[in-house]
Amino acid sequence: MSALFIALTILLTVAMIGAALVAVLGKSMPIAILSAGLVSLLASVLFLLLAAPDVAMTEAAIGSGLTTFLFFFILGRVRGGEHD
């Protein structure tokens, strides 16, 4: 049980750091935004493992759901500006 939890935590951690690196260093803006959403989604699974279901729900609904769409609304309005 405990070994499984630790393995899952390490897996989530590696995936989160990979997604965060893509979000910060990647060339394409839409992929960066989606990676930031992915970091939030993986973080919400991590919160569930850390016995915080309330926080996991909030992070999944707000951090990875609504925030990603806010970015895409603005990204759609500033076409041409994302390569500066």
Binding site: A20, A23, V24, M29, A32, I33, A36, V39, S40, G63, T67, F71, I74, L75, V78, G81, E82
Partner: peptide
């Protein structure tokens, strides 16, 4: 925009 993405991370 990229700075804001980094801040959310």
């Amino acid at each position: 925009l990229r700075m804001i993405v980094a801040f959310t991370v």
